[in-house]
Amino acid sequence: MKALQDLKNAVRSRSIHVCYVNVGSCNGCDIEILACLAPRYDIEQYGIYVHNNPREADILLITGGFSPQWEDKLKRVWDEIPEPKAAIAIGNCPISGCVFNRDGTYLDPPVRKHIPIAAEVPGCPPRPTEILEAILSLAPVVFKDYERREE
């Protein structure tokens, strides 16, 4: 099955679909993800498509420290994504809670507690180029030879 695997590798390296979910951020990280779409960074030249639809996504970008309303919903979104898949935490919020992790907050960071996170991009907010680089360097690790590793 080597030929088939090679074909899959080739296709997957040029077609990464991304979905982003905001689980309680300040919007700063979300707009930096949106900025990646701009022709200046041109995310599509690397074969990355932002659709925001979990059912056809390969990579889930998470922004924001976890707000309690998401408890069942984030799990659901995560389950809907077909294998192989990976989640990247964008910004300080999902990693540590950023400035919101103080007395009186309603958030419940880190997101790592709720779904498995494959990579983290710190920054408040990180630059679009950093987000782009994280996706590009994570994708081969997760998708290359996925079926062969499964066996």
């Binding site: 309680g24 707000s67 400035v99 907050t105 309603y106």
Partner: peptide, 30 residues
């Protein structure tokens, strides 16, 4: 609503302005 409730006003209470300034900025990133 309720998906991004962070409780910033509650966090701000009792803190000096040096911290509140940065918290205020993070009400909205746009």
């Amino acid at each position: 609503l309720g998906y991004v409730k962070k409780g910033i006003e509650r966090i701000m209470v009792g803190r000096p302005w040096q911290e509140v300034m940065f918290l205020a900025e993070r009400v909205c990133g746009i």
